[in-house]
Each structure stands twice: as structure tokens, then as C-alpha cells.
Design a protein around this nucleic acid. Structure first.
Lengths: 240, 240
DNA sequence: TCGGATCCACACCTGGATCCCG
DNA sequence: CGGGATCCAGGTGTGGATCCGA
């Protein structure tokens, strides 16, 4: 897809204003539910690639556009006025979450306060709009259906699970065990590489304060966690 | 000049390898002397703009290309193996330096050691290849002649002058007088804005350690200084 | 004149995520 | 299957400097 960027600039509709309330946001989300990515992209005059292999963040960018996210590159929520974060949730052929969900980068310099209450992970996950979307690669990208989104705030139980994982992971970092910190740790929250490629290096500190180089990494929610969220949302919509 | 970038990528000659010695470098410089920018750009298949108003760094980039600079964006000399920095020197209709010469950015956070010996300015100016180039705007860019370049190392006297200015300027910064630090200070070395525009802000610290916002600034050599270098080089070439 | 303002190219970083092999 | 690797777009920072109005 050569020159796709220029096409976007020349043909794309202006981004809508940010919604002024959670209700206004959910109204837009409801409008999108049941449509295909092709319909939504066409209406927004947003160029659609053949597949996602070279455009991995395309679906997320499309929804940021049509829902009116205003955060830009700032380290704040996608809908800054509402304090709401947007996450698309890719579903496999069985309607289950297909991929883990990126949350935020790990500050390897160890400059987080060490308190869950102040953590970037907690802030990001305190108020999330989830939008489920078909992601079976046997379906052409343009033909994939969008489901009904919902706004989630962690229950006390869910937050306790995330906090426990986060504290375990941060302790490993504090101990300087960053090279041994693989994706196997954490029941629902894990740490995995996050970079353009494995040769990208970031500066970090080991336990002695020595400066070392590491691959940049990020926090991710395992699908076992988002599956629970999806089930809870499905049940509550049945009851309404 | 739309799509000039693409033209460059598609048609430009590969950049030569870095010269392996100062002699090899000067051989290339001698080859360029007496040519016009148009000839040099054509031989290198380097796209040439109509004028410099929208391409202010073009001449410098052209010479980096044809001379084989290898520093990329790293904070090292342009010819890393030789420890030599490249500067083009624009000349007015009278053959005198027309513009001040940018040296390096001012680290407003005050993190320089405070010692001239360790300063970025001194490092940058310890070994410079100057290439004089016609810059009278009445001459079309492609028709401007390139003069004979020379490698300069500061004399003890020149270094003392630069050092005196640098220490004066750094003292004003240390005193927190950054807002009062205008381009009027410094006999040969001055501080001026260096940014995309005046709305670009960088973080700095005032005398109390309070964080403030300032326009990014850089060190520049006044033309009164480069005029002396040019005269000295001219005289020495007459004697050879 | 020259001090303050500005312009482009390109590398790098961050936020959006999905790919893919053992 | 899932841990490790990877991809794009857009914003920001840096290095190359020259422009331009009072």
C-alpha cells in the first residue's frame, strides 16, 4: 500500500470533537456496533490496508479517529476530558480474546514510586472503553464485524489481582533481575518486549545502580484476564 | 519542491566511504573547489532546491554527503575516525562571511561541568574543516562557486578568546540570568535561539533550581571570528 | 546590521497493536 | 500456545543552517 499516508491526509474526514460525556461516547459506540470495519473506514474516508501484518495498530487508530480521541501523543487517557482509555479487543473465531492487550511501557529505570496506587498501569486501567472486534484472519479485514463496546472499571477483586501481579513484577525489577524477568511471570499481567525490533535498546539500571542496556518492554494483560471481562460484560448485557 | 525527499532517495548516489586520513579528505575538498553547487549536486544526483529559504541546511547536507561524513545523528564529529567537524562558510558578495556559524546547542539544564576543557563547544571547535561557499542571494543557488576548504585548529590566542566568552556566558547561565542572556553577550561566541520556532520550549532550571521553560538556544560564532579564520587561511595559502 | 525567528531532513520515541516460530 | 519479535504512524528532538524586520 504505497503512499497510504498521503491518501489519508488528503481524503480523510476531519476527526470528530471529543465526546462531552460518557453517555455521548457510548452513543457513538452503539452506532458502530454491528458495522464492519470496511463500512466504518469508508464512512470516515479512512484508507484501509489489505491486512494488518504491516499495519498492526490500524484498527486502534481507526477507532481513535471515529470516536474523537484527543490525547495525541500525550501520556494521558485517550479521552482526556472523561478520563477514559480506549482499547480494541480482537476476538478469535470462537468469540474469545485472541491477543494479549498492551497496557503501557515498563519504566526500567526504576523511577516508579513502587506504589501500586501511583502506578501507570493502575491509571491506564482505571477506566477503559473496550471495543470487541472480529479478528479471525480468515475474514477479510474490511468484512470484520464490530461488537458492542462497554466501559469497564476494575472490581475490587480484579484490582487486587492486577496489583498482586504488578507488585511481583516490580519487585523482580527492583531486585535487578531484569534479564530473568520473562513473560512467564504474572497470572494476569505480564511483561513482554515492546519495540520496533529486538535490536532496539533502552538504558536501565541493575541492582548495583550500574547502567545496562535492555530491550524496551511493556505491561500486557493476558487473554485469560480480558476473557473474564468480556464474559462479565456479556452476562450483564443479557440481564438488561 | 514537493516530493523532493522521495527524489533524493530514488536517485541519489550512494554516499562515499569516510576518508581514511586528513590527506584523503583534503584531496576530496580540492576536487570540489572551483566547482559550482549545481555541478556537485548533479554529479551526486542530489536534488537541488530553487533557493535556501525552505531548505536552510541543504548546502551542509550536500557536503556531508559528497565528503562521506559518517556521524549520522550521533553527538560526535562529522568525520568520526578523523575527529574532524565539517562547517560550510557562506560568503557575501565581498567574499566575507555572511552569517554566524552554529556550533552546538546550549544545555540549559546547567549540566555541563563548568570547565572549558570539557565543554561541547571546545570539542566541536578543536578540529574543523571549513568550506567557503558563495552565498550572495543574487546568484542562483546552482551557480554559486565553492572555494578551497581548509582544516583549522584554534591557535592558543583564538582558544583563549573563545574560552573567555564561553566562561562569561556560562556564568550568566549559572546565575540563572537565562532570560537576560541575549545575543549581545560574547565578543566572538554568542548565544541565540535555536529551534523550529519561538513557540518551541525546553526545560531549564533557574538559580533556585526551579524548573522553567525557555526557548532552546545554541552557541554561534560571530562573523567577526570566522572572518579572521578566513583571512588567516587566505594568507597562508598565498605563502605556499 | 544583527538579534531573534524560522525551515527542512532524518533519527528516535511512543502509542496503536499483531505476527510467528518452536 | 504463548513468549519473544516485530510493524506503522505521528510527534519530538537534533543537526544542517539562513531568513528577515526594526
Amino acid at each position: 500500500m504505497p503512499a497510504m499516508t498521503e491518501d489519508i491526509f488528503q481524503r480523510m474526514q476531519p476527526r470528530p470533537s471529543p465526546p462531552e460525556s460518557p453517555q455521548a461516547l457510548m452513543s457513538r459506540v452503539t452506532d458502530l456496533a454491528g458495522k464492519t470495519l470496511g463500512q466504518i473506514a469508508r464512512d470516515a474516508q479512512f484508507a484501509i490496508p489489505d491486512d494488518l501484518s504491516r499495519h498492526k495498530g490500524w484498527v486502534g487508530s481507526l477507532f481513535e479517529h471515529v470516536l474523537g480521541c484527543d490525547a495525541g501523543s500525550q501520556a494521558i487517557q485517550d479521552f482526556s476530558a472523561l478520563g477514559i482509555e480506549l482499547k480494541t479487543l480482537p476476538l478469535d473465531a470462537h468469540g474469545q480474546p485472541k491477543e494479549s492487550t498492551f497496557v503501557c511501557t515498563v519504566n526500567a529505570a526504576g523511577s516508579e514510586s513502587g506504589q501500586w496506587q501511583d502506578s501507570w498501569v493502575r491509571k491506564k486501567l482505571s477506566n477503559v472503553l473496550w471495543v470487541p472486534i472480529e479478528a479471525d484472519n480468515r475474514i477479510a479485514l474490511a468484512d470484520r464485524f464490530v461488537g458492542m463496546g462497554w466501559i469497564w472499571q476494575p472490581t475490587a477483586e480484579q484490582e487486587a489481582m492486577l496489583r498482586q501481579d504488578w507488585e511481583e513484577l516490580m519487585e523482580l525489577i527492583a531486585l535487578g533481575e531484569q534479564n530473568a524477568l520473562t513473560a512467564e511471570y504474572g497470572q494476569y499481567l505480564q511483561i513482554r518486549p515492546k519495540a520496533a525490533n529486538s535490536r532496539v535498546m533502552a538504558r536501565a539500571s541493575d541492582i548495583d545502580g550500574e547502567s545496562i542496556l535492555l530491550n524496551p518492554r511493556g505491561f500486557y494483560l493476558r487473554t485469560s484476564f480480558t476473557r473474564q471481562l468480556l464474559e462479565a460484560a456479556t452476562i450483564s448485557s443479557l440481564g438488561s
